[in-house]
């Protein structure tokens, strides 16, 4: 564990909690892509199956359980509890366009052709693009609530911090996982345009709106 990774995990946790609290306290999931949240629930489920087979540390297990629990709670709020506020007309990204090619890719490019390993690989690839329905929704409506942009920033920052963690681990331990690194790079690059808007607009007190 190094500082980059800890900061990355905290940023990830913060993102998840910001989103949960936003929906719970406003009693509304307006502007939130349920499809991205379904994809994240799928990411956590397929990645953390090792909870059943391998014990790494108390920290590791606790965080995994929290991520999975929060992610299902979010999906439940969007599709059940606050369904009436869910903006499905703007959440039109086709999930199968991501899930099917990624399932195929994880069968072809993985560390080991074993069920758990393939599911782990699938989750890494899927996570890298799972935010696309949300970004698509923001670009479709042309704006995002400030709290939603804080969520997106924390979520994007998490993988950027993990990239630094991987650089650290490469030099400190000689550890590198090419699948995670390439997918993490793709994931971080997808956020770059948003990071730019966040820094130039939201941090200056303006709402995130895209030029018409």
């Amino acid at each position: 564990m190094n500082l980059f990774r800890l900061a990355g995990d905290v940023s990830h946790l913060l993102a998840i909690i910001i989103l949960l609290l936003k929906i719970w306290r406003t009693r509304s999931c307006a502007g939130i892509s349920g499809k991205s949240q379904i994809l994240f629930a799928l990411v956590f489920t397929t990645r953390y199956l090792d909870l059943l087979t391998t014990f790494i540390s108390f920290y590791n297990t606790t965080m995994k359980v929290i991520y999975i629990g929060c992610s299902y709670a979010t999906v439940w709020m969007i599709y059940a509890k606050f369904k009436a506020t869910y903006d499905s007309n703007h959440d039109t990204f086709r999930m199968e366009f991501l899930v099917i090619p990624i399932a195929a890719l994880s069968l072809l490019v993985n560390h080991d052709f074993a069920p758990l390993e393939i599911l782990w690989t699938f989750s890494i690839y899927l996570e890298s693009v799972a935010i696309l329905p949300q970004l698509f929704m923001v670009s479709k409506t042309g704006e995002a609530e400030t709290i939603t942009s804080h969520y997106l920033f924390a979520l994007g920052l998490y993988r950027a911090l993990y990239l630094m963690n991987w650089i650290w681990r490469f030099f400190a331990e000689g550890f590198f996982d090419l699948i995670a690194i390439v997918a993490g790079l793709v994931q971080t690059i997808l956020y770059c345009d948003f990071f730019y808007l966040y820094i130039t607009k939201v941090l200056k007190g303006k709402k995130l709106s895209l030029p018409a």
Binding site: R5, D9, H12, R47, D50, T53, T54, I56, N60, M63, K64, Y67, H111, D112, A114, L116, E117, W120, Y162, N165, D177, A180
Partner: peptide
């Protein structure tokens, strides 16, 4: 061959 990958990150 009984090697399984341990993914220690989240």
């Amino acid at each position: 061959r009984e090697f399984t990958f341990i993914h220690d990150e989240l």
